Lab assay of single mutants.
Amino acid sequence: IEEVKKIVSEIQSKQLTRITINGNTYQVNSPEELVEYVRKVFS
């Protein structure tokens, strides 16, 4: 979970619009959307 928080804060600070998780690239339009992807991947 700490690793996830680190990734999320990194993305928020860079305002990235794409994230790659487990080889899948997602278009991310908002931090909320990012959190949803993270929940799916780590749930």
Rank of each mutant, 00 (worst) to 15 (best):
Ile1Pro: 10
Ile1Phe: 13
Ile1Leu: 12
Ile1Asn: 12
Ile1Tyr: 13
Glu2Val: 11
Glu2Asp: 12
Glu2Phe: 09
Glu2Pro: 07
Glu2Met: 11
Glu3Gln: 13
Glu3Leu: 15
Glu3Tyr: 14
Glu3Gly: 07
Glu3Asn: 11
Glu3Phe: 14
Val4His: 07
Lys5Tyr: 12
Lys5Thr: 12
Lys5Pro: 04
Lys5Ile: 13
Lys5His: 13
Lys5Trp: 14
Lys5Asp: 15
Lys6Met: 10
Lys6Glu: 07
Lys6Ile: 08
Lys6His: 10
Lys6Ser: 09
Lys6Thr: 07
Ile7Asp: 02
Ile7Gly: 01
Ile7Ser: 01
Ile7Asn: 02
Ile7Leu: 12
Ile7Ala: 05
Ile7Tyr: 08
Val8Trp: 05
Val8Pro: 02
Val8Ile: 15
Val8Ala: 05
Val8Asn: 00
Val8Ser: 01
Val8Cys: 09
Val8Phe: 07
Val8Asp: 01
Ser9Ala: 14
Ser9Asp: 13
Ser9Asn: 11
Ser9Tyr: 13
Ser9Trp: 13
Glu10Tyr: 11
Glu10Ala: 08
Glu10Asp: 09
Glu10Met: 13
Glu10Ser: 06
Glu10Phe: 11
Ile11Asn: 01
Ile11Lys: 01
Ile11Ser: 01
Gln12Glu: 09
Gln12Ala: 06
Gln12Met: 15
Gln12Thr: 09
Ser13Met: 11
Ser13Glu: 13
Ser13Asp: 11
Ser13Cys: 10
Ser13Tyr: 09
Ser13Ala: 12
Lys14Val: 04
Lys14Phe: 03
Lys14Trp: 08
Lys14His: 08
Lys14Met: 10
Lys14Leu: 10
Lys14Ser: 08
Gln15Arg: 13
Gln15Ala: 09
Gln15Pro: 02
Gln15Cys: 11
Gln15Val: 04
Gln15His: 10
Gln15Phe: 06
Leu16His: 03
Leu16Val: 05
Leu16Gly: 09
Leu16Gln: 03
Leu16Tyr: 03
Leu16Phe: 05
Leu16Thr: 02
Leu16Cys: 14
Thr17Asp: 08
Thr17Trp: 05
Thr17Tyr: 05
Thr17Arg: 05
Thr17Asn: 04
Thr17Met: 05
Arg18His: 07
Arg18Leu: 07
Arg18Tyr: 06
Arg18Val: 12
Arg18Ile: 08
Arg18Pro: 00
Arg18Trp: 09
Arg18Glu: 10
Arg18Ser: 11
Arg18Phe: 07
Ile19Pro: 02
Ile19Leu: 06
Ile19Thr: 00
Ile19Arg: 00
Ile19Gly: 01
Ile19Gln: 00
Thr20Gln: 06
Thr20His: 05
Thr20Gly: 00
Thr20Asp: 03
Thr20Tyr: 06
Thr20Lys: 05
Thr20Trp: 04
Ile21Gln: 00
Ile21Pro: 00
Ile21Phe: 07
Ile21Trp: 03
Ile21Gly: 00
Ile21Tyr: 03
Ile21Thr: 01
Asn22Ser: 05
Asn22Thr: 02
Asn22Ile: 04
Asn22Trp: 11
Asn22Val: 02
Asn22Met: 10
Gly23Asp: 08
Gly23Met: 02
Gly23Thr: 01
Gly23Leu: 03
Gly23Ala: 02
Asn24Thr: 14
Asn24Leu: 15
Thr25Asp: 07
Thr25Trp: 08
Thr25His: 11
Thr25Asn: 06
Thr25Phe: 11
Tyr26Asn: 00
Tyr26Asp: 03
Tyr26Pro: 00
Tyr26Arg: 02
Tyr26Ala: 04
Tyr26Leu: 13
Tyr26Cys: 10
Tyr26Val: 13
Gln27Leu: 07
Gln27Ile: 12
Gln27Met: 08
Gln27Gly: 03
Gln27Val: 15
Gln27Pro: 01
Gln27Lys: 06
Gln27Arg: 06
Gln27Asn: 08
Val28Thr: 15
Val28Ile: 06
Val28Gly: 15
Val28Leu: 14
Val28Tyr: 14
Val28Pro: 00
Val28Ala: 15
Asn29Lys: 08
Asn29Ile: 05
Asn29Met: 10
Asn29Pro: 05
Ser30Trp: 07
Ser30Arg: 04
Ser30Ala: 05
Ser30Met: 04
Ser30Phe: 07
Ser30Val: 06
Ser30Asp: 06
Pro31Cys: 11
Pro31Asp: 02
Pro31Ile: 08
Pro31Thr: 08
Pro31Leu: 07
Pro31Ala: 06
Pro31Tyr: 10
Glu32Ser: 07
Glu32Ile: 04
Glu32Lys: 05
Glu32Asn: 06
Glu32Ala: 12
Glu32Phe: 05
Glu33Val: 04
Glu33Leu: 12
Glu33Cys: 12
Glu33Pro: 00
Glu33Lys: 04
Glu33Tyr: 02
Leu34Glu: 00
Leu34Asp: 00
Leu34Phe: 01
Leu34Ser: 00
Leu34Lys: 00
Leu34Tyr: 01
Leu34Ala: 00
Leu34Cys: 06
Val35Arg: 01
Val35Phe: 06
Val35Gly: 02
Val35Tyr: 06
Val35Asp: 02
Val35Leu: 09
Val35Glu: 09
Val35Pro: 02
Val35Gln: 04
Val35Ile: 14
Val35Ala: 08
Val35Ser: 04
Val35Trp: 09
Glu36His: 12
Glu36Ile: 04
Glu36Leu: 04
Glu36Lys: 05
Tyr37Ile: 15
Tyr37Met: 15
Tyr37Asp: 01
Tyr37Gln: 10
Tyr37Ala: 12
Tyr37Ser: 05
Tyr37Arg: 11
Tyr37Trp: 13
Tyr37His: 10
Tyr37Phe: 14
Val38Phe: 06
Val38Ser: 00
Val38Arg: 00
Val38Lys: 00
Val38Gln: 00
Val38Trp: 04
Val38Ile: 14
Val38Cys: 10
Val38Met: 10
Arg39Asp: 06
Arg39Lys: 14
Arg39Ile: 14
Arg39Tyr: 14
Arg39Ser: 08
Arg39Trp: 13
Lys40Phe: 12
Lys40Ile: 10
Lys40Asn: 10
Val41Asp: 03
Val41Tyr: 13
Val41Pro: 00
Val41Leu: 15
Val41Phe: 13
Val41Lys: 06
Phe42Trp: 05
Phe42Leu: 12
Phe42Glu: 03
Ser43Met: 13
Ser43Phe: 13
Ser43Leu: 14
Ser43Arg: 08
Ser43Val: 08
Ser43Tyr: 12
